[in-house]
């Protein structure tokens, strides 16, 4: 925020002229880019369909109500499967994510030059790919069912848990580690006595947080055949059974709210 000298004396301006010019140009470029992107995107859009959208929406809305409550008795089993996919998937992910996090953390990796980049690549690869895509792949490889869902959730969670956990490991108090190492403890003992107690709260918080997200994600995995309540959603959509779709939406909403509540309670108890 420079004070400028000008003919009228000193005047205060938020930014200097050059900076303002650059900022304006930047915004202009962004607007131009967005307009261009919009045109590329809507090249093949059939606007007649779009104009019809409000009527379609009203039509669907009308068909969705009232929900078909009797359908609920067929949803308990898929709901249980959904819970299992999320929970078992999270547990499975922990077995891989914990060692990977230790290999990725700058202060515990055996080799900053070779092992760490490999672990980070694994984490990025897992994080970049949505659990639905993992499920799509696994259904194609292993066939449809719960197993594909559990593995998909696990594969996505490895990156998430691994990243947050290795960041937690990098933030531990090094003097505690030093003190335990100075007693002549072995590497495994230092891990057990100095590092594990320090990352335990973060570890528990991250796990419950991811479990909560996994509950949400596992509700839709069935759309690609990986089990759970999404499978029923897929059937109902294919048969245009909108009242059933409504009930499934309500059940998903309830599950999500419940799992968020549980996760908030558990995290609160830990901290």
């Amino acid at each position: 925020m420079p004070v400028l000298q000008s003919a009228t004396g000193r005047s205060w301006q938020h930014r200097s002229g050059r900076q303002r010019l650059i900022a304006w140009f930047g915004w202009l470029a962004l607007v131009a880019l967005v307009v261009f992107a919009w045109q590329v995107m809507t090249r093949d859009t059939i606007w007649a369909f779009v104009a019809d959208a409000p009527r379609q929406a009203a039509d669907i809305g009308e068909r969705m109500f009232p929900p078909r409550w009797g359908y609920m008795e067929r949803l308990w089993q898929p709901l249980w499967d959904t819970l299992n996919i999320a929970t078992l998937g999270t547990l499975l992910a922990l077995f891989v994510a914990v060692p990977v996090a230790f290999l990725a953390a700058r202060n515990t990796t055996p080799s900053v030059r070779f092992v760490r980049p490999a672990a980070l690549l694994l984490i990025v690869a897992s994080r970049s790919i949505n659990s639905l895509i993992w499920a799509l792949l696994l259904v194609s490889i292993l066939g449809p069912g719960l197993l594909a869902g559990i593995l998909a959730i696990a594969l996505r969670s490895i990156g998430f848990i691994g990243k947050l956990l290795y960041e937690a490991i990098e933030e531990i108090d090094a003097s505690q580690v030093e003190a335990v190492a100075a007693t002549g403890a072995s590497g495994a003992q230092v891990l057990d006595y100095a590092i594990a107690p320090q990352i335990m709260p973060a570890f528990a918080g991250i796990t419950v947080f991811r479990w909560d997200i996994n509950i949400r994600e596992s509700t839709v995995l069935g759309l690609v055949g990986a089990g759970g309540i999404g499978l029923e959603l897929s059937h109902s959509l294919n048969t245009l059974a909108w009242p059933q779709v409504t009930l499934i939406f309500i059940v998903i909403l309830g599950t999500v709210v419940l799992s968020e509540w549980v996760s908030a309670r558990v995290r609160h108890a830990i901290i």
């Binding site: 202060n107 515990t108 900053v112 003097s175 580690v177 335990v180 190492a181 230092v190 891990l191």
Partner: peptide, 16 residues
Amino acid sequence: AVRFAREPGALAVALK
């Protein structure tokens, strides 16, 4: 004390 910890691989040494 922090400086010792910040040496690259400081904890890795402790873990060996």
